[in-house]
Nucleic acid binder design. Structure first.
Lengths: 209, 209
DNA sequence: CCGGCGATGTAACATTGTTACACCGGTCGG
DNA sequence: CCGACCGGTGTAACAATGTTACATCGCCGG
């Protein structure tokens, strides 16, 4: 009964088509495609199944239902997202170590707006991430905490790394989230975004206790 | 054909029950009640109509459909929200003029989490606010711009008031939004919220160009 | 060879948004 | 005073969606 969440479960199984991709990843890819191109409302069980080339039953055998599929999208999103964040982590020689991560954060969100909404907004009503999914999300946050702690010496930061990382995360998320909704009051502006993100990182240098 | 958005249209009409409340406000109240108590997923046309004591047709005669009802919730939310924000606007003698608005912002969002999600998140899929609704939302933002401009002398702020107000809005929204989702990585903490909001207001005093 | 088990498809069911249509009550022109 | 219109209302139906029951197929172990 494959109701699990990790795609690695079936990597070595024989449940594969000739091309070597199993039904689960095909379904997940189809769901992500529909989500990105047509929005969360168009991501129905039937449309995903049709795009994946199977019947609606496939969603239930591999994900247990639509909620499981959304959870897989949630987890997949945080894994890709975390990868992008870690890739921009400071290497210790950067003069503005946190700005790079902030910019990487914004770029990933702007490149994957609908998935970001599933991860942080309530794009799918009545979906609540499971404990395992939340743990994965928090693990991504921990990467930010680690990078922040590593930067504290360079930036002469006060306070705990966790607090500062939380402030940073909240600021970036707020800017990006406002930008993603159509509520961008003063128009989209890359330059203002840079000012905000860089200023936010600079804020951590002592202005905030 | 009452498909409009303003509740004032019917204030002087005769379409009233004995208690003096018309069907439209009864439906809106029912929708807000269900939204707050059971979430966006439970706010179906039928549940709203049943709670309001009429048939599903009522939602279509007074709001044109579910989208119109959601839009009414959106607008109602921004009107109440804006009122709370304006009530906390600095009076010119405040030493920390922007902190009060930031705190009022957070308190309103925490008191009306689901409505806040409808307004700023994508709680209802495939709903996009109309131009009129966006205009009302931007009007609320303008209040923040005005208050910011009035505070610029007190705080010795640089830059344009619109930019600074946008920074401020983004920061508060990010903190609250993260707090509202269950992704609150480091746990809910009023004291940290205060540090963030006050520090954010302080950030505007020169750290950010 | 065959028995079991998991994956799959078909078809049904409950729920939800929506629409068609008939009814009812007040209003206004004659 | 009367009848036609018109807007609000309810009932019932329809399409779409999430979900489940059940039969079928194919593979693997004995």
């Amino acid at each position: 009964m494959p109701r699990g969440l990790s795609s690695a479960d079936h990597e070595t199984d024989a449940n594969q088509t000739a091309s070597g991709t199993d039904m689960r990843s095909v379904l997940l890819t189809a769901a992500l495609s529909i989500l990105g191109e047509q929005g969360a409302g168009a991501m129905t069980v039937r449309s995903v199944a049709t795009t994946a080339g199977c019947s609606t039953t496939g969603v239930y055998t591999w994900f247990g239902g639509k909620a499981g599929l959304v959870e897989a999208i949630f987890i997949d999103g945080f894994q890709n997202f975390g990868e992008a964040i870690r890739a921009a982590a400071p290497d210790g020689t950067d003069a503005k170590p946190l700005s790079g991560m902030a910019l990487a954060y914004r770029l990933w969100a702007l490149a994957n707006p609908t998935q970001y909404l599933v991860m942080f907004g309530a794009a799918v009503p009545d979906y609540q991430p499971s404990d395992e999914a939340i743990a994965i999300a928090i693990a991504t946050f921990e990467d930010l905490v680690v990078a922040t702690r590593a930067s504290m010496d360079v930036l002469n930061l006060d306070g705990t790394a966790r607090d500062i990382a939380h402030h940073l995360w909240a600021g970036i998320h707020g800017y990006v989230s406002l930008e993603l909704s159509k509520m961008d009051m003063a128009g989209n502006d890359d330059e203002r975004a840079d000012r905000f993100l860089i200023g936010l990182a600079r804020l951590m240098r002592g202005c905030m206790r």
